[in-house]
Design a protein around this nucleic acid. Structure first.
Length: 600
DNA sequence: GCCGTTTTCGGCCCGACTGTTTTCAGTCG
């Protein structure tokens, strides 16, 4: 947590969300009203995924326009963002040692357990908890035994291994898909008739807490036994008749749930989440006189149907239709307005992988790529693209031997020759001449304007000096964005999921200037970047920006990462029209800054 | 503490599994 008291101007949305979540944790330990706890959790989530800087919203006096923020929390946020601290929160902190709050993040240790361990054994840290469990002191408590101690020790080990980190989607997804394949192979013929990953994986969240797999099988016990015996499984956290949780060698937790065919629709809906989306849907069902669980609907007697009457759904869409709404694509199910839109029938037609006609940011052996331009072009053609922008690094990024003006011209000759071949063969495919020009530490670019002016598509990115202070890095980036030759701002925040935090850059200001100048904002599709993220992408389009989705491929297989970028765009509610590389070549070029209006 | 197609009070989702229990509380998703 980077929240520094006394420096309210440094608090990011993430910091503010962490502070509210911490308050919710403390309230849980104090056994406060559960709805008050949920209110803090909801507000934290709303601010974490807010498209705008919380400081800006605060300055405009619009805190209460955030869904989940009412008067009470708005007042607290006002105090936090003005004073850098909240008196009410400080009083809470005096009541509970921070180590006790930390304890509830250990699997199988919740607020009740943490409170009792603290009250009755005086344990105030995870380390003390470990020692007490090893010494067999915890079994002295009523309701605890040797197994509880083992469970706690295992939980501590797991938490240490995993840290607070969720698993990046790019790691979890291939792992889960392979696991599903192996489970099918390990099960007798006809053992599994349907299987799908649900949860945050199906929603394509950028990081995954644990993997949820849903299956239909006439022999659930056989499937669950096979699941536990898969080679990647190191531990079984729980196992019953229809449900099983295992831990993989990587520390990732995977839950399998086996259901009957008639329950599939409700079960898939339920296990896809998000939790917040499901709460909305269940409340909607409640208002219509139905109680919703993972099996289906049961009439409460409050509506037209007789109490106890049940409805089952083989498909998700049938369940949503019964409730009078369209079926929101999983990527939208984050309680960001999708339930209302689905009820009103105004869900957007989201961009799809098939809509992509080319890429505007990729590398070759001319800089740090591993494949020739010809090989990259061939890979792009194989994917059905009709254009690909050669965007090798410019000078200014020492370690990869970026191109200067002279080498850029030499590269242009190679590109022209390749294009000539396709033209003669009557092929539609075209390579574009581009660069990923370095935004230097003072905002100057790694190539002179004369060189950039000759290119088709210029991507400008920051690779170093990512720790500059907010004002410096924002001004640096703004200078680049305002350059008339810069068409696209590449991976704007510079983050690497799980290993490098985003820079301090003021995205709201950047996006506003991008909208003003017609600079396209990139969604970098590489699963370790996903930059900009869904929240900023949605905000960018709200402000009037266009988006480009690029895999930033450094090898031919890198282009397969496009699907992750598409997922970010879909989570941002983007339609094909918002994404310029869904356009045919002429229209795409005409949408670029320095060519606007040139072609139809 | 939040919120409104039951609107300014009275609600706020629901079931599986575990451990230590004789009927359930805690945790998790």
């Amino acid at each position: 947590m980077a929240a520094e008291a006394g420096k309210p101007d440094r608090l990011s949305n993430r910091d503010v969300a962490a502070i509210l979540a911490n308050v919710a944790d403390m309230l849980q330990i104090l056994d406060a009203n559960r709805f008050r706890i949920i209110a803090f959790q909801n507000a934290a989530e709303a601010i974490r995924t807010l498209g705008q800087d919380i400081r800006v919203v605060h300055a405009e006096g619009k805190l209460q326009t955030i869904s989940g923020v009412g008067k009470g929390i708005a007042d607290a946020l006002d105090e936090l963002l003005t004073e850098g601290r909240v008196e009410e929160f400080d009083k809470l902190k005096e009541k509970i040692p921070p180590g006790v709050v930390e304890m509830i993040h250990i699997p199988d240790v919740g607020p009740k357990t943490a409170k009792r361990l603290w009250d009755e054994l005086g344990i105030t840290s995870v380390e003390e908890l470990r020692q007490a469990a090893e010494a067999g002191r915890i079994r002295e408590l009523k309701g605890f035994g040797a197994k509880s101690e083992q469970k706690i020790l295992k939980g501590i080990e797991l938490a240490a291994k995993r840290g607070d980190e969720r698993t990046p989607l790019g790691e979890a997804r291939p792992l889960a898909l392979r696991l599903i394949e192996e489970l099918i192979e390990a099960t007798p013929e006809e053992g599994i008739t349907r299987i799908e990953a649900a949860g945050s994986l199906r929603r394509w969240r950028e990081t995954i807490g644990d993997v949820d797999i849903l299956a239909i099988s006439p022999q659930s016990q056989t499937v669950i036994e096979a699941f536990q015996k898969l080679p990647q499984v190191v531990d079984v956290a729980g196992s019953g008749e229809t449900k099983c949780s295992v831990i993989l060698t990587t520390g990732l937790r995977v839950d399998l749930r086996v259901v009957e065919p008639k329950h599939w629709g409700a079960a898939l809906q339920y296990f896809t989440g998000s939790k917040e989306h499901n709460v909305q849907v269940r409340e909607l069902a409640q208002r219509q006189g139905w109680s919703l669980n993972e099996y289906g609907l049961t009439a409460t007697g409050a509506g037209d149907a007789a109490e106890g009457e049940q409805r089952f759904f083989a498909e998700e869409a049938e369940l949503y239709a019964f409730l009078g709404m369209a079926c929101p694509p999983p990527e939208l199910r984050e309680n960001r307005g999708e339930v209302k839109a689905a009820r009103e029938g105004v869900l957007p037609e989201l961009v799809r992988l098939e809509d992509i006609r080319g890429e505007l940011h990729g590398h070759s052996t001319w800089s740090d790529g591993t494949a020739s331009i010809a090989a990259m072009a061939e890979a792009a053609r194989q994917r059905g693209y009709s254009y690909w922008n050669v965007a090798d690094h410019s000078t200014g990024l020492g370690m990869v031997g970026g191109l200067d003006s002279k080498r850029l011209r030499e590269q242009s000759d190679e590109i022209a020759a390749l294009n000539e071949q396709w033209r003669e063969a009557g092929e539609e495919f075209r390579l574009l001449r581009g660069t990923e020009v370095e935004i230097l530490s003072d905002g100057a670019l790694g190539l002179p304007d004369e060189a950039l002016a000759e290119l088709d598509v210029v991507v400008a990115s920051i690779h170093s000096g990512l720790r500059q202070d907010r004002e410096t890095i924002t001004e640096r980036c703004l200078k680049a964005v305002r350059n008339p030759h810069v068409d696209i701002l590449g991976h704007a925040t510079g983050r690497l999921i799980g290993s490098r935090p985003p820079s301090e850059i003021d995205m709201e200001r950047i996006l506003r200037v991008c909208a003003e100048t017609g600079t396209v904002v990139e969604i970098n599709a590489h699963p370790s970047r996903l930059d900009v993220n869904d929240v900023y992408a949605r905000r960018a389009v709200e402000l009037g920006c266009k988006i480009a989705i690029n895999s930033d491929a450094h090898e031919t297989s890198g282009m397969e990462m496009m699907e992750y970028g598409i997922a970010v765009a879909r989570r941002a509610w983007l339609r094909a029209a918002d994404v310029i590389n869904t356009y045919p070549l002429d229209k795409m070029l005409a949408a670029l800054k320095d060519r606007r209006g040139e072609a139809a």
